[in-house]
């Protein structure tokens, strides 16, 4: 048992308001940031670094909206501390496009209507990017499995599969999976 308070009172508040200073490597650049130690990476990105491209839908690990890449692996930024993110290459949706334009996935998601309201989109894009790193020609079954941790309420996922398949095809044709100027 973890009694949080004496009879019925609210749980105690966060006490430490002192900020931690650290360097986070986000989208290929080192950023010096200061944030309170109990903040999640999601909060640090959005509130302390103005990177609001990373969205949130539950903050409890239950929707996948907050997905970012950490050393290339999709992780839920709502369940990682800012403190736990040093020494890791973090990639957010803002880092997917390069000087030559968007990542192929960003184009195909836009072209094929895989982003309706667009709120789940950053999470899907990053998960999809990691999938394509592993598998240049993913089957539908692979996509169903690998994307099963990202919820979308608008599309029914079908256009998302199509967009990933088209991006994969274009990337195969270009012969390299990191065209489009991504940093990681």
């Amino acid at each position: 048992m973890n009694p949080t308070t004496e009879a019925g009172g609210p749980p105690p508040p966060p006490t430490s308001l002192a900020k931690t200073h650290m360097v986070l490597r986000v989208n290929g650049e080192d950023h010096e940031v200061a944030f309170r130690p109990h903040k999640t990476l999601l909060e640090v990105l959005r509130e302390d670094m103005d990177l609001t491209g990373t969205k949130h839908g539950c903050e409890l690990g239950e929707c996948g909206t907050c997905t970012v890449l950490m050393d290339g692996e999709p992780k839920l930024s709502c369940l990682v501390l800012g403190l736990e993110s040093d020494g890791v290459d973090i990639e957010t949706v803002e880092g997917m496009a390069g000087p030559e334009g968007g990542h192929p996935l960003q184009h195909t998601f836009a072209e094929l209507g895989a982003a309706q309201c667009g709120y789940c989109t950053p999470g899907f894009l990053l998960t999809a990017k990691a999938v394509l790193e592993d598998d240049k020609d993913p089957s539908r079954e692979t996509l169903v499995e690998e994307l099963s941790g990202n919820l979308c309420r608008c599309t029914g996922y079908l256009k998302i599969y199509e967009a990933i398949e088209l991006a994969a095809q274009r990337m195969r044709e270009k012969g390299s999976s990191d065209e489009g100027g991504s940093h990681v």
């Binding site: 508040p13 309170r36 999640t40 999601l42 903050e59 709502c78 403190l83």
Partner: peptide, 10 residues
């Protein structure tokens, strides 16, 4: 957002 309470982290 649902936020964490504060803690010491080691």
């Amino acid at each position: 957002m649902m936020r964490l309470p504060s803690f010491r982290y080691l």
